[in-house]
Design a protein around this nucleic acid. Structure first.
Lengths: 126, 126
DNA sequence: ACAAATGTTGAGTCTGGAGTCAACGTCAAA
DNA sequence: TTTGACGTTGACTCCAGACTCAACATTTGT
C-alpha cells in the first residue's frame, strides 16, 4: 500500500533530507519568487505543521519542489491543486475536455490509467 | 474549422437565445450564488463586452451555465479554468497524474483524444 | 416625442487568500 | 548559564481578484 502522507509532512521530510533549516529554505524559495510575494520561514513552519487554513499558492509549491528536488505534480496533488498548464490543455482541445469529463465520472483504477498511458505512447510512436 | 469564440460572446449569445435581459439573468444567477458574493447586471455587461481584466470566478461561471443551459466545461475552458474537480482526480490517482503529464507534453490531436476516449469506454464496459 | 426598459462605463468597495512580524520556547554547544 | 541557531504561535497586514454603485447612453414601445 502506498504510504499516504500529507503536504506538510512531505515538505518537512524533503527539507530535512536536504539538511536545510526553515530559515535557509524559506530564503531560497523567496528568491525564486522574487517578483511575486515572499516566503517567510514562519510560514514554512506553519506549512510543515499543517497550521494553515489554505495551502500555499501553486507558484510557491513549484518553487519549493524546485528547491528540494521533489516531484512537483505530487506536491501539487497533495495540495489539491491541478498543475497550472492543465487549464490550457483543456482550453485548446474539446477532445481533451470530453475525455476528462468521462474519466472523472468513471473512477478509473491505477491499472486502467496505466493501460491508457501505454495506448497513448504507442499511438504517438507508431 | 471550429468557430473559435470568446467567453463574452458566448455568454451574450446564450443570453439572447434565452430572451433574457442582463438584469433578469444577473438576478437569477445571483440567486444561485446566494451564499457567495453577488452578481450584478453591470458586471454581466462587462463580461459580454470583454471589459474585464479577469474572468468571473468558477462558481459564477457554473451558475451562468446552469441558468443558460450552456456546456459548463466549454465555458470554463473559454475562461481558461480547469473544472473544479480536476484537482481531486489528480490528487487521488498517481496514474492519472502521469497520464496527464504525458498527454500535456505530447500535444495530442482531436482524433487521438477521441481514440483514447473510446479505449476508455471499451475497457469500462467489457 | 416621451417614457420605460435595457445596456455601458469609470470609479470605487470589499474580502479572503497569502503571507509577515514580533515575541516567545527549545535545544545544543562553548 | 549564556549565546546563538532553530522552531512555533497568534495577531496582524497587504493586495489583487471579484464584484457593486451611481450615473449616463442607447434602444424600444406607444
Amino acid at each position: 500500500m502506498k504510504s499516504s502522507t500529507t503536504f506538510g509532512v512531505k515538505i518537512r521530510e524533503l527539507r530535512i533530507r536536504a539538511k536545510l533549516s526553515q530559515r535557509d529554505l524559506a530564503e531560497r524559495v523567496a528568491k525564486r519568487l522574487k517578483d511575486r510575494r515572499g516566503f517567510d520561514f514562519t510560514y514554512l513552519s506553519k506549512i510543515e505543521n499543517e497550521r494553515l487554513e489554505h495551502y500555499p499558492s501553486a507558484p510557491a509549491i513549484l518553487a519549493l519542489a524546485a528547491e528540494l528536488g521533489g516531484d512537483s505534480d505530487e506536491l501539487l496533488a497533495l495540495a489539491s491543486k491541478a498543475p497550472p498548464d492543465v487549464g490550457k490543455m483543456l482550453q485548446e482541445s474539446q477532445g481533451a475536455r470530453m475525455f476528462f469529463r468521462s474519466a472523472m465520472s468513471s473512477n478509473l483504477s491505477e491499472d486502467e490509467w496505466k493501460r491508457l498511458l501505454e495506448q497513448m505512447k504507442k499511438k504517438k510512436t507508431e
